[in-house]
């Protein structure tokens, strides 16, 4: 199923259900992600793809099933055969293994670019300030914003802000990088620079789960495409199979509309 089945998966999701009140958004998701795998999740809006991503780092609590990252169940702990809910400190520790990039960037507006990037390494991971600054400076350079270290987010364009957000997510050396529609809030001419940065990362062997509408990115950079609709995974496989020759009618319809 996965592109690299040899290694143990870094993420396992089993029969994940999530409902907001009576509105069931995820209806039994099973998913394995291998280390270094780049997975693009496609699907119409309302298909549950963003919710799935938010469940992975427990911004949303799931109602049934489980999600495991790096061998640890998210939000719970098995003690003997009793499953116990974790407290906020333990959940914070689990989340610190993941980096997330949001649709609306969510940079901290009262901090400069550099401060944004070193905040989690220094404050959460206990990295020494000097080392964090060094690491952060390198990452900010890598996303092409070396001259904006001391700028505040509001002084940057949307594309630049999102690249800073990517540097911020990389700075925590995450086991998994989660992207929640990272280009959907950008002006069309700024989408390219963010996608280019993401394609770079994909080549470097980072584990990435990307919820996106960019079919082009899925085709070029993803190892696997998952197509979701109505809270189910409809179909998944290599991008060239799913995007060129989808087996399911629903996938074909969706691709026909977006391409």
């Amino acid at each position: 199923m996965t592109a690299t089945t040899a290694q143990a998966p870094i993420l396992r999701a089993r029969n994940v259900h999530k409902a907001f009140g009576s509105n069931e958004v995820l209806k039994g998701i099973d998913m394995d992600i291998a280390p270094s795998e780049v997975v693009a999740i496609l699907g119409p809006s309302g298909s549950g793809k963003s919710t799935l991503l938010r469940c992975i780092n427990r911004l949303e609590e799931i109602n049934k099933g489980f999600i495991e990252v790096d061998g640890e169940q998210i939000g719970y702990k098995l003690q003997g055969d009793r499953l116990v809910a974790l407290g906020s400190a333990a959940i914070a520790r689990q989340r610190s293994k993941m980096g997330m990039v949001f649709q609306s960037f969510n940079l901290f507006p009262h901090m400069t670019v550099l401060q944004n990037v070193i905040e989690a390494p220094v404050g959460v991971h206990g990295v020494k300030r000097r080392e964090a600054v060094e690491l952060a400076t390198g990452l900010i350079e890598k996303v092409g914003l070396a001259d904006k270290l001391n700028a505040y987010p509001r002084q940057l364009s949307g594309g630049q802000q999102q690249r800073v957000a990517i540097a911020r997510a990389l700075a925590v050396k995450p086991k998994i990088l989660l992207f929640d529609e990272p280009t959907s809030a950008l002006d069309p001419e700024l989408v390219g620079e963010v996608l280019a940065t993401m394609k770079d990362l994909a080549k470097q062997g980072l584990t990435m789960i990307v919820v996106t509408h960019e079919i082009g990115f899925a085709k070029e950079a993803a190892d696997r495409v998952i197509f979701m609709d109505g809270g189910h995974i409809v179909e998944q496989g290599k991008p060239e199979e799913i995007l060129v020759n989808p087996q399911r009618e629903r996938t074909r319809e969706f691709l026909h509309r977006v391409l």
Binding site: N57, L59, S88, A89, A92, R93, Q94, R95, S96, K97, M98, G99, M100, F102, S104, N106, F108, E119, A120, G123, V124, H125, R168, V172
Partner: peptide, 16 residues
Amino acid sequence: RGQKETAEAFGMKPMR
């Protein structure tokens, strides 16, 4: 609301 959410997504404890 996204600000608190982002801080927590990066592993900050609620007080931090």
